[in-house]
C-alpha cells in the first residue's frame, strides 16, 4: 500500500490523511524502534518507507578517521549522499554479508553516493584494519573509525546502538550493533533508515524513494 504525498486524495479529508499516517507509522515504527528516545521521530505521512521527515538530526561536531588515517569530519558528508553501515572486522558472519549486498546494490546508486562502513569496534579496528577490510569488498567504499570516545559520541548522536559484550577468557568480545542502514543527505541531515531484512532490491528502492522525496522538497 503506497500513498503518494502529492496525490489529490491526500489534499482532501483530514481523516484520510490520518489513516495514511497511521499505516505508515506502523511500517516506520519497526524500522525506527532502535532509535533512542532523544531523537524525536516524526512519522512521515508521505508513505515513503524509512523516510525521516522532517529530518530529526543534522550530523555535526564529530571528528573521526577514514581508512587512510585522514580526518573524517562533517564536511566529508556535504554535497553528496551517504549510506552508512555499522559493523566491525571481527564480525565474519553478518558484516561481510551486508557488505557484499551493498557491493551488489551500489551500481544502482546515483554517482554522488558514498557507501560508508563505520566501525563500532574502534579499539580493535585501526584505519589500516578498516582499509584492508573495506577494500576487499569494494575499493570505492569508505571506511571510518576513530578513538573509542569519538566513535561512541558519533553513534550516540545518531541513536545507533553499539554495545560491547563481556570479553571471554581469550580476550575476545563481540559488539552488538544496529543492523539498519542510515541515509544522510548532502546537507548532512539524517533523512532515512533502511531496515532489516536488507536485500539488494530493497536497499536500492528505499534509498531512491527517500532521495526522490527529499530532493522534491528542495
Amino acid at each position: 500500500m503506497r500513498f503518494r504525498y502529492n496525490r489529490p486524495m491526500l489534499k482532501s479529508p483530514f481523516s484520510l490523511r490520518l489513516l495514511a499516517a497511521a499505516v505508515v507509522a506502523l511500517i516506520v515504527g519497526a524500522a525506527a524502534a532502535w532509535l533512542t528516545e532523544n531523537i524525536e521521530l516524526t512519522r512521515s505521512p508521505q508513505g515513503t518507507e524509512g523516510l525521516l521527515w522532517p529530518p530529526p538530526k543534522t550530523l555535526e561536531g564529530f571528528a573521526l578517521l577514514d581508512q587512510a588515517g585522514a580526518p573524517f569530519t562533517p564536511e566529508r558528508l556535504e554535497g553528496k549522499w551517504s549510506v552508512l553501515f555499522f559493523g566491525f572486522t571481527h564480525c565474519p558472519d553478518i558484516c561481510p554479508n551486508t557488505l557484499r549486498l551493498l557491493e551488489k546494490a551500489s551500481p544502482a546508486f546515483p554517482a554522488d553516493t558514498q557507501v560508508v562502513f563505520v566501525s563500532v569496534d574502534p579499539e580493535r579496528d585501526t584505519p589500516e584494519t578498516v582499509a584492508q577490510y573495506v577494500r576487499y569488498f569494494d575499493p570505492t567504499f569508505l571506511g571510518v573509525t576513530g578513538t573509542p570516545e569519538s566513535m561512541a559520541a558519533f553513534t550516540r548522536s545518531l541513536g545507533v546502538l553499539s554495545m560491547r559484550t563481556e570479553a571471554d577468557e581469550h580476550g575476545n568480545y563481540s559488539v552488538d550493533h544496529s543492523a539498519a542502514l542510515l541515509l544522510v543527505d548532502p546537507h548532512r541531515r539524517l533523512v532515512g533508515i533502511i531496515a532489516q531484512p536488507l536485500t539488494e532490491e530493497s536497499v536500492s528502492r528505499h534509498y531512491l524513494d527517500i532521495r526522490r522525496f527529499v530532493e522534491h522538497q528542495g
Binding site: 532502535w34 559484550t165 552488538d176 531496515a195
Partner: peptide, 12 residues
C-alpha cells in the same frame, strides 16, 4: 548471530 529489532547480536 541474531537480528532482532534491527540489532545484530552474536553469542558463543
Amino acid at each position: 548471530s541474531e537480528i532482532t529489532e534491527n540489532t545484530v547480536t552474536m553469542t558463543r
